[in-house]
Nucleic acid binder design. Structure first.
Lengths: 224, 224
DNA sequence: TGCTAATTGTGAAGCATTTCACATGAGTAT
DNA sequence: ATACTCATGTGAAATGCTTCACAATTAGCA
């Protein structure tokens, strides 16, 4: 399905393509540091263990960014990709559940580096409410909906036990937040228009387990 | 490509299928708790937001586990799936890098629940070496290779900065460990036969970012 | 025992993604 | 200028994954 929009008609872009764009972005940042002016699809592909055609096709969904005979201008392509991914800006993020994983996320530098700023924390534990984590005071989860709205939060990271995740997500949805990163091992129900990504580390270990007991050689060498 | 092996010829199984098996396993555990004797592909599909055909096809790669007209026996199918995934046993796991994320992983209950036992910790920080995390003494990373071998470690979780990840992985490979879960945002180089899965939380936020700025409706409602 | 309803297992069809292959355009050197 | 090289952008082919559709099989019941 094409999604007609604003000024251009957009094709449906596959999840794989979007993930590869993230990887291109990372590699382009590196190439920039290494003072490359331009990069060919061949070089980019080599670094990502992909085919050059794949790289070119991915980029071609969004425009023509290269020069025939030369390749792609690194700095410019990086800017374009960051624009496409919507990471040429700051996102206001809240985190619910200041437990093991939650605490780790608050201190996770890669988030801030990429413009994802965790600016609010929530928990239901009285001992945690009011405490200070990296300069942020933990709020009472009772006020989740109102505070998300008042603080114009755009994304929420959910790091609570599976048993309560759905209730919390219902509140998040009520607060009109449209993007959720979920660490609870559960299939969340959200209305259409709300985006959910699940981060499930157990599933990745299970994949490794499967690969080992089956002497499995995944095509392309596995998830990169 | 078919992979002929031991006594049966195995088809290449897609990454998606394996991930769905993980999800089936989770749901089957739930169904078992809810005292279901049998479950149909329709019910399973409903809970996972898939099509019944998808469920049946996934399972059919590994055998015929159902009864026509009835469905699948829950307990039995759960056992079969756990067997397929190789999680009908205990895996000995080590963790390198007892920082933010590493610490969270040590305390992460879902790992133990699924048979992934973290039994060794490594770090290069003198202040951490010798300290006790959940009953495990942190070892010096200098001894990584020998201790991995001596303790018959089968999987390693890498939670170190990107700058040193490759060196550590080289050591892990030398210790003949064949499975690595990598949290560093870098494309690791490993010889064939070594399985790597990358866990990249920034990429998931970037996907959400893309979805938001593009009013993107991913097919199937996004990653589940 | 025979009929009905339910649900699996699976080839084949339908889609989606990746790769191929080549025309096209840009830079370079003589 | 012209020729040569390099590398993009893109239809078309190839491959892979999902869904369809239906024969086959089982349970339940009269």
């Amino acid at each position: 399905m094409d999604i007609p929009s604003g000024d251009t008609a957009r094709k449906r872009i596959s999840e794989s393509t979007i993930h590869r764009l993230s990887r291109y972005f990372r590699t382009l940042s590196l190439l920039e540091k290494e003072n490359f002016e331009t990069v060919s699809s061949k070089e980019l592909a080599k670094r990502e263990k992909l085919t050059p055609a794949q790289v070119r096709k991915d980029l071609s969904f969004f425009g023509s960014f290269g020069t025939r005979g030369l390749g792609y201008p690194v700095a410019e392509l990086k800017a374009k990709v960051s624009r496409i991914l919507g990471i040429d800006r700051i996102w206001r993020v809240a985190l619910v559940g200041v437990g093991n994983i939650g605490s780790a996320m608050v201190s996770y530098k890669e988030f801030i580096k990429q413009g994802f700023h965790i600016v609010k924390l929530f928990d239901n534990d009285q001992r945690k409410i009011g405490s200070n984590h990296k300069g942020i005071i933990v709020s009472d989860i009772k006020n989740l909906r109102t505070e998300l709205q008042d603080d114009r939060i755009e994304m929420v990271i959910v790091a609570v036990p599976a048993t309560v995740a759905q209730y919390i997500v219902d509140d998040i949805v009520k607060a009109e937040v449209k993007a959720i990163l979920n660490f609870a091992p559960i299939n969340l129900k959200v209305p259409s228009g709300v985006h959910v990504r699940n981060e499930n580390m157990v599933m990745e270990l299970e994949y490794l387990s499967f690969a080992m007991v089956n002497h499995h050689s995944p095509k392309g060498g596995g998830k990169a």
